[in-house]
């Protein structure tokens, strides 16, 4: 059973990203949205081994913060977000 984990909190304001990564299964993926996209900053990825995971980023939120999509991630728009929510068996939002 695969799960898409959706984060929207900044990795610099709490420990959600770390907690999520600890229980991320091999079939699971991460979708960064809102302030969670700050995890692409070098300071952020130095804290967390994101490069080894399947990571998607909501493009709109990345652009709104003038950040670039790193090589280890895939940028998605809303139709692709919908598609991801179907590709994975469950969607777990870290509210």
């Amino acid at each position: 059973m695969s799960t898409l984990h959706v984060l929207s909190h900044s990795p610099f304001s709490d420990t959600r990203l770390g907690s999520c990564l600890r229980l991320l299964g091999s079939d699971d993926a991460l979708l960064l949205s809102g302030d969670a996209v700050y995890a692409v900053l070098p300071q952020g990825s130095a804290l967390t081994p994101l490069q080894e995971k399947t990571v998607f980023i909501l493009e709109e939120d990345l652009l709104a913060r003038n950040l670039d999509c790193p090589q280890w991630a895939t940028c998605v728009d809303y139709p692709a977000f919908v598609e991801l929510s179907i590709r994975y068996d469950k969607v777990n939002s870290w509210l």
């Binding site: 929207s8 949205s33 809102g34 909501l58 709109e60 939120d61 728009d77 809303y78 139709p79 977000f81 919908v82 598609e83 509210l95």
Partner: peptide
């Protein structure tokens, strides 16, 4: 949806819902 209209997550939910119907 667990957030008020002024929260960005409310907007994301709306955009997701629109995209779901559009697909």
């Amino acid at each position: 949806l667990y957030s008020a209209a002024h929260a960005p997550s409310s907007r994301r939910a709306l955009r997701f819902a629109e995209a779901a119907l559009a697909s």
